[in-house]
């Protein structure tokens, strides 16, 4: 295949599309995690949580670098210089941590943090497992590395999830509410957007329906053990982020995360 080969071009487009989904997902997820820093329910947990956010930001950097290598621009620009309509992340990761702002009256919702992190990380682990067999070698290499760190992330959030679900009535209520909110956007996490067919046909990753099925398989026993019902279907309440549909929360996130960078994108910081 040559550079101008239409199949090659199509393939590259599909790779780029998938990389944006993976990179933007982890980037915005890690950003929301970084807002929690210093505000977690417990100091020891704050420290542990921050390591997870750092790991995730590290995965982000790997994905953006793969895009950089494909000529999409510098990793820093891709992370900070793109507007919300250009973003391919799912809506679930962009939603705010709770009422308030990290600088003022942060009434952040730990139940939402736990459920979002747990469900997202489980989905990520399933995707990464599939990506290990990706036809795009640089991506399968990256997947092998990312997978190493996911075991701890998953165990950490699973511990929080099951413990809070089986503690007080108040905690159970908060956790169930958070679970509903996360389920309402969970389809967006699996979605491969309008490039789905090509992404799958080129053997970059398995189809979203398979990934979703694996996720349900993985979590069903956990749900059973804590007496929680797996819903018949999930949702995409605020639209499909893969196709550029986003909430105002993402706009706010981008404003914040690029505030300094935008002062002078050409400068070295």
């Amino acid at each position: 295949m040559t550079e101008n080969d239409p199949i090659n071009q199509d393939y590259q487009k599909a790779v780029i599309e998938l990389l944006y989904q993976l990179a933007d997902d982890d980037f915005i997820h890690a950003f929301r995690g970084s807002e929690w820093l210093g505000l977690a329910p417990h100091i020891e947990e704050d420290v542990a949580f921050s390591s997870i956010s750092q790991d995730t930001m590290g995965h982000t950097a790997m994905f953006y670098r793969l895009l950089e290598e494909l000529g999409e621009g510098s990793a820093d620009h891709l992370a900070q210089g793109r507007s919300s309509i250009e973003r391919k992340n799912c809506v679930l990761v962009e939603l705010v941590n709770g009422p308030g702002n990290y600088m003022e009256k942060p009434r952040y919702d730990w139940a939402f943090a736990v459920v979002r992190n747990y469900f997202y990380t489980q989905a990520k682990a399933i995707k990464i497992q599939s990506l290990k067999n990706s036809s795009y070698k640089p991506l399968s290499d990256a997947a092998v590395k990312v997978k190493m760190e996911l075991y701890f992330h998953l165990l950490h959030w699973k511990t929080w999830f099951t413990q809070l679900m089986t503690s007080t009535d108040e905690a159970r209520k908060r956790m169930e509410e958070a679970t509903e909110r996360v389920f309402a956007e969970l389809d967006g996490v699996f979605s491969q957007g309008s490039y789905r067919v090509k992404i799958v046909d080129f053997g970059l990753i398995e189809d979203e329906t398979i990934l979703r099925k694996l996720w349900i398989q993985e979590l069903s026993p956990i749900f059973q053990s804590i007496n929680l019902t797996m819903p018949e279907s999930f949702g995409m309440k605020h639209g499909n982020g893969r196709d550029g549909e986003h909430t105002g929360d993402l706009e706010q996130a981008i404003q914040t995360l690029s505030e300094v960078y935008r002062l002078n994108p050409a400068a070295a910081w």
Partner: peptide, 16 residues
Amino acid sequence: WVPKAPSLKRKLGIMA
């Protein structure tokens, strides 16, 4: 300045 750090490297550094 953690969420606002101006590059991926700085975002990681200041978080740590």
